[in-house]
Design a protein around this nucleic acid. Structure first.
Length: 790
DNA sequence: TGGTAGACTTAGAACGACTCAG
DNA sequence: CTGAGTCGTTCTAAGTCTACCA
């Protein structure tokens, strides 16, 4: 490793390319073929080997817990009990409240006065401009404009504490109006068919059937696992009421009538008048309004997802064993609210109560519940633009920048440890190499009830092929079952190590059998405080971006070209992180369209050239390129194209004729006779004949005003257009499966973008959407000399 | 120690609004 | 003015990672 290079992210030392007009994705090697989209079931042999998983009997345990109610709703971090800042498990909301109230010692440490006085006093004092809490739903209209301005500029305060420790106090007072439940189910009464006959279902059964019907035209409905899980759960619901017919076979079900009803509804919604739409929107806004904002220490903050997720069929990604399972309606009894102990507790819907009202000051969630499909927790958090999210976002990037100081040493360490005799250490070093160079995720182990996807630590034998002398070929499904396919040259010792590990564990087993993400992260944490595997992804992504941006930006370029460079740098990062999207359904069609456009332009060009030759036949010898044939312009295509041209011409004439007639009619005059139309259509016929002749003879006459010079200029113009369109096509093709947004949103330090915009006078809005601007508010007051790494 | 709960970030799909060529 | 295509937002699934517990 050369000295000058060793602090660059190692992931791809590609020979520096001249900035070509169209950047090809710089994967180290293959990657040329479109990823066989959506990994669906491409897995090599699909067989999971039993002993891969280290756990076995989890599900049962989980269910038991789930069943019990109130008592085991998420108990805000028990670990903190010692100093009494959090809730404990015991029971009943009411009790809890008083309990927390009296025991919140930590709360009274900071800003104790306000937190112990009444809620009203708190709000009034802390936020002179803010409305007295969320409840004032009525008068907030006019306040709207002011609201926008009330951004808490926390990044300008010097009290930027190191704020590590996850159990730190996050707030003193917290007010909000809870969550918005989805509306009750309203039966539509449309009868689906079973065995060809219409059937009547109870509302409960109809609801579930409708979930499926709505997806009828999607891939989900065709997925056997999805069908199976849905059908099982639906039958459960059907059985609960004897009024439901007996439904035994999925294949006899016809959900089409319901699907059609939904289509009709959509159509109607589209057709609605402006006023109706406006009214619906206003209504929606009105119900949402109370939930839009929370008050943290008196400061107004936007809430992210205040809606309780509506019931539906679980749409697991990839080969998820539970996909299609019924996700049940969430009741208030399952929802825990987290709120200041002096704040007014939001009313649960009439006749209901909350699972628990917590006052956990170490947490940033406003509400939480446990979902029934996977038993995982769902949370209501503040929006990305909030101080809480912003601060942790900034910390994330600061952590990544800090890594810069350590990375050289860390790389030296793991490079040396590639030869360690302790296999544990050697595995760790090898994994580090992969994480650092190829931005792999850590790769926690997963259960049997989840899709089989892997990251670095959980890579199995079949996921990496060895191609001597030192090439590794990765092929596995990563997060979201996105396929990672990449062939890379690696350090010879890494190659050897993988070979040894593979041999030791055998097919079906994890390559790093002595390594866990916990162990890896513990090691990393000892290298640098707060360091974990994911920081490398952030670091390498941001570093790559900065580097690419520097390389590609041409200061004298117009803004549009600078943006092109920006997006290319962004694309580099997206490729590094393997951020993909499904190719849009119409992609092929769109490409075809562009190709047609190119051909049409080429056709035009060919005609122009022929005009020159017709004017000056002598040029034929001198300039052979004028008579060169373009392989794109086949005889077959030209015939069709010309037929089209003629047809269009006819249409045009007809339309003009009709328009004229209409006008005459309106003026009370008599219309032109049909014979007139016929006369005019002769022009099109002549055109047809002329084109045909031109094609045969190759001679094309031009307008008398034309000369060779002018024709040449015209050719140049179309040539330029052709080039542009080709660029467009390539760009589209290359971008079809790359998603830029994820890296922009999560991995690229926004300050790099801000500095770049300032330096090159590009408006920030060109680079960030409105929401990103809000999210990255904290990054916007740096000066243009800011650099990712000093 | 290893498994798990819990909280928080990261991810693509789906959806809705906007835009621009025809 | 319309519809296809794009862009931005919303939704929620799927990761990471730490503290805690047996």
């Amino acid at each position: 490793m050369s000295d000058s290079e060793d602090d660059k992210p190692l992931y791809k030392r590609v020979a520096p390319k001249a900035p070509t007009p169209i950047q090809t994705p710089v994967k180290i090697e293959t990657h040329d073929q479109a990823f066989p989209q959506k990994p669906t079931n491409s897995s090599a042999d699909g067989s999971k080997v039993a002993n891969v998983k280290r756990s076995n009997d989890r599900p049962v345990k989980r269910n038991v817990k789930q069943e019990a109610d109130q008592d085991n709703t998420p108990l805000a971090k028990k670990r903190k009990q010692s100093n009494g800042t959090t809730v404990k498990k015991e029971s009943k909301p009411v009790k809890k409240e008083t309990l927390a109230d009296t025991t919140s010692a930590a709360a009274s440490l900071k800003r104790s006065v306000s937190s112990t006085t009444s809620q009203k006093a708190t709000t009034a004092k802390k936020a002179k401009t803010a409305e007295p809490a969320v409840k004032e739903t009525k008068k907030s209209k006019k306040a709207k404009e002011e609201e926008e301005e009330e951004v808490y500029r926390w990044w300008e305060e010097d009290s930027q504490k190191a704020e590590d420790g996850d159990d730190s106090i996050k707030w003193t007072t917290l007010e909000h109006n809870g969550v918005l439940f989805p509306p009750e189910y309203v039966p539509h009464g449309v009868k689906m068919k079973y065995d060809g006959k219409p059937i009547t279902l109870t509302p409960e059964a109809e609801e579930v059937a409708s979930f499926f019907a709505a997806l009828l035209e999607t891939d989900h409905a065709k997925n056997p696992t999805f069908q199976k899980n849905f059908f099982r759960d639906w039958q459960e619901v059907l059985k609960q009421d004897p009024r439901n017919p007996e439904i035994k076979e999925f294949d006899k079900c016809d959900f089409r009538p319901i699907w059609e009803k939904f289509e009709l509804d959509k159509e109607k919604k589209k057709q609605a008048t402006k006023e109706e739409k406006q009214k619906a929107k206003e209504e929606r806004m009105k119900t949402e309004e109370p939930f839009l904002y929370a008050y943290v220490d008196g400061r107004k903050e936007k809430v992210g997802n205040f809606r309780i997720e509506p019931p539906s069929l679980f749409r697991g990604r990839g080969d998820h064993p539970k996909t299609g399972t019924l996700k049940k309606r969430v009741t208030p009894e399952q929802v825990t609210i987290n709120i200041g102990h002096t704040a007014k507790v939001p009313e649960p819907p009439a006749g209901h109560k909350w699972a628990l009202v917590a006052h956990d000051q170490t947490a940033t969630w406003l509400a939480t519940w446990k979902e029934n499909v996977n038993g995982s927790f769902k949370y209501v958090f503040l929006a990305a633009s909030s101080a809480w999210k912003g601060q942790s976002d900034m910390q994330k990037f600061e952590k990544a920048r800090e890594l810069k100081k350590y990375v050289k040493k860390i790389r030296e360490n793991y490079t040396a440890e590639l030869r360690d005799k302790l296999s544990e250490t050697r595995q760790r070093a090898t994994a580090m190499y992969l994480i650092d160079r190829f931005a792999l995720r850590a790769g926690n182990e997963k259960g049997d009830d989840e899709a089989d996807t892997v990251g670095c630590c959980s890579l199995r034998y079949e996921h990496v092929d060895l191609i001597p002398p030192n090439t590794l070929k990765f092929d596995f499904l990563g997060k979201d079952s996105i396929r990672y396919e990449n062939s890379v040259d690696v350090d010879i010792q890494v190659f050897k190590n993988i070979k040894i590990f593979k041999k030791q564990v055998g097919p079906g087993h994890m390559i790093f059998d002595r390594l866990t993400t916990v162990g890896l992260n513990k090691y990393l944490n000892s290298c640098m405080k707060g360091l974990s595997a994911k920081v490398f992804r952030t670091y390498n992504a941001s570093h790559t971006f900065q580097q690419q941006l520097d390389k590609l930006t041409v200061p004298t370029d117009p803004i549009s070209d600078k943006m092109l460079s920006y997006n290319r740098a962004n694309r580099e990062v997206a490729v590094l992180c393997n951020h993909q999207r499904t190719v849009s359904k119409s992609h092929a069609q769109q490409i075809e369209k562009i190709k047609d456009k190119i051909r049409a332009l080429k056709y035009q060009n060919m005609k122009l050239k022929r005009q020159i030759l017709t004017l000056e036949p002598a040029l034929k010898k001198k300039k052979p390129e004028l008579s060169a044939e373009d392989p794109d312009l086949t005889e077959e295509w030209m015939i069709e194209y010309e037929a089209n041209l003629v047809e269009k011409e006819r249409e045009k004439i007809k339309q003009k004729f009709e328009k004229q007639n209409e006008k005459l009619k309106a003026d009370g005059e008599k219309p032109l006779p049909e014979s007139e139309l016929k006369e005019r259509l002769k022009a099109a016929n002549e055109m047809e004949a002329r084109l045909k002749k031109e094609r045969k003879t190759g001679k094309v006459a031009c307008k008398p005003t034309m000369n060779v010079e002018k024709l040449k200029a015209a050719i140049e113009k179309t040539d330029a257009k052709i080039k542009m369109t080709i660029v467009q096509e390539t760009d589209k093709e290359e971008n079809k499966e790359i998603a830029l947004s994820t890296s922009k949103m999560n991995y690229i330090d926004p300050r790099i973008s801000v500095a770049w915009c300032k330096k090159y006078n590009v408006p920030l809005e060109k680079v960030f959407s409105k929401t990103l601007i809000e999210k990255f508010r904290w990054a916007q007051n740096i000066d243009d000399s800011w650099i990712y790494n000093e």
